[in-house]
């Protein structure tokens, strides 16, 4: 359904990811594992067309995805960046509303759905997003991406700096959304537990390329693999 093919890219002259190919099937949840600085975020930005492709491309439903990020978003790619880039001087409601309206959905309905799905946002609905705590911003960024009604959701380190109880809640919501709406999810993570709890398959990255592809079971049991992830 969603494929990144031979992705090579980086910033300026520096190539960070080299020849990376990844596929996510319809309604599948796939994890992208690896230590800091192996190129997970760069791959996510490549998938969203936020960095120029030196080579390689992205396919959605077998067709080449458009090259402009705005068009790619409209083609069904939802993106939750690392560091939760919410619009700081807009309210929670506006953050969600503008995402829905831009893609031709009702902003009011989207906000209602989001507040139902993420009750923790309800008391904050009219607050500026910049004033929310880290965990709340992360949930908001997720709610905003969902408001665009994506076919595939790209999550970049969604658990970074988020307290454990919210991480568990987030895992539950992602599984439900995946089940009920059939949204495919690609999640780049360092948090192994989180990945084990939602993903069925994983790619492990090392120095800008995919080192191996593995499944949930071997991740759970293979102590050696775990230490390799830690990098010792």
């Amino acid at each position: 359904m969603f494929r990144i093919v031979n992705a090579t890219g980086g910033y300026g002259k520096t190539v960070i990811i080299r020849d990376v190919s990844i596929a996510v099937d319809k309604a599948e949840i796939v994890a992208l594992l690896g230590r800091n600085g192996v190129g997970k975020s760069t791959l996510m930005r490549f998938a969203m067309a936020l960095i120029p492709a030196l080579s390689g491309h992205v396919e959605i439903d077998g067709r080449n995805a458009p090259e402009a990020p705005a068009k790619r978003a409209k083609a069904g790619v939802g993106y939750v960046p690392q560091g939760r880039y919410v619009f700081p001087r807009m309210t929670v409601t506006e953050n969600i509303g503008v995402a829905a309206e831009t893609n031709g959905h009702s902003g009011r309905l989207a906000v209602e759905t989001a507040l139902r799905e993420f009750p923790m946002l309800r008391p904050k609905a009219d607050d500026l997003a910049g004033g929310l705590s880290g965990g709340q911003q992360q949930v908001l960024a997720l709610a905003r991406a969902l408001a665009t009604k994506p076919k595939i959701l790209l999550l970049d380190e969604p658990t970074e700096g988020v307290q454990p109880s919210i991480i568990d809640e987030m895992a539950g919501i992602l599984k439900r959304i995946n089940r009920e709406r059939g949204v495919a999810i690609l999640v780049a993570e360092q948090d192994l537990d989180f990945c084990l709890s939602i993903a069925t398959r994983a790619y492990v990255m090392e120095k800008g390329s995919v080192q191996l592809e593995t499944d949930r079971e071997s991740l759970r049991t293979d102590k050696k693999l775990q230490q390799q992830l830690l990098g010792v």
Partner: peptide, 23 residues
């Protein structure tokens, strides 16, 4: 809606494009 898009596009231009706003 225009006002929201305008503010979004300028507060976080890249993120705005990533949710479909033609910045």
């Amino acid at each position: 809606v225009y006002g929201m898009k305008a503010r979004a596009a300028i507060q976080m231009p890249e993120m705005a494009r990533a949710i479909g706003i033609e910045s």
